[in-house]
């Protein structure tokens, strides 16, 4: 079983990112749980969600020590760096997080999501950039599954949006494939 925490500002598409990943994993035939932050926790403008994916029944959707972290802003970095499991991986939106992680027992991947999103033709699709990179770095699911999940989630939405999502996923995917490491 692997657990991932997705965290950032509201508006960065953090919950959508986790949701798309969860649906993709479900379509891959995995057991999956998706647990968003809620209520007063959300009012400060931060958002996070935990996605657990497993070949077996999942007992706790909560991740006290997640395997992976997708961190979109500085407050989330401060909050979750210490929680990641030893040997775990952090994907960092390096466009917004200028911190150096202090831990040496985790792998950190810097993705300049804001810049890459612009390259893909939008500054709205940071989450898709990160998700594309996430797919390479963790090997948790394929781009095809994510696209299938997005098609399901955004049923009836504009084709242009799907095209943009695909482009952004590809940019993130290619960037990560070339090997990013801190």
């Amino acid at each position: 079983m692997k657990k991932t925490i997705f965290a950032g500002f509201g508006g960065q598409g953090v919950l959508m990112m986790g949701y798309a990943f969860a649906v993709a994993a479900m379509m891959d035939g995995k057991h999956v749980t998706y647990l968003p932050s809620y209520g007063a926790e959300m009012r400060g403008g931060t958002a996070n969600c935990t996605v657990a994916v497993s070949d077996e029944e999942i007992f706790s959707p909560v991740a006290s020590s997640p395997d992976f972290g997708v961190i979109m802003n500085r407050p989330s970095m401060i909050r979750y760096e210490s929680a990641i499991k030893p040997g775990g991986k952090i994907l960092l939106n390096s466009s917004l997080v200028d911190m150096d992680p202090s831990r040496k027992d985790i792998e950190v991947f810097r993705i300049p999501a804001n810049e890459l999103a612009k390259k893909a033709g939008s500054d709205q699709t940071l989450n898709m950039i990160m998700l594309g990179a996430f797919s390479v770095i963790t090997g948790m699911t394929s781009l095809e599954s994510i696209m299938a999940a997005l098609a399901e989630i955004t049923k009836g939405k504009k084709a242009a949006l799907m095209k943009l999502n695909r482009a952004s996923l590809d940019v993130g995917f290619e960037y990560a494939k070339q090997g990013v490491r801190s």
Binding site: A22, H31, V32, Y34, L35, P36, P61, V62
Partner: peptide, 10 residues
């Protein structure tokens, strides 16, 4: 409970 209500599962 709050967790069950918020959590998504297939």
């Amino acid at each position: 409970d709050g967790m069950m209500g918020q959590m998504m599962e297939p």
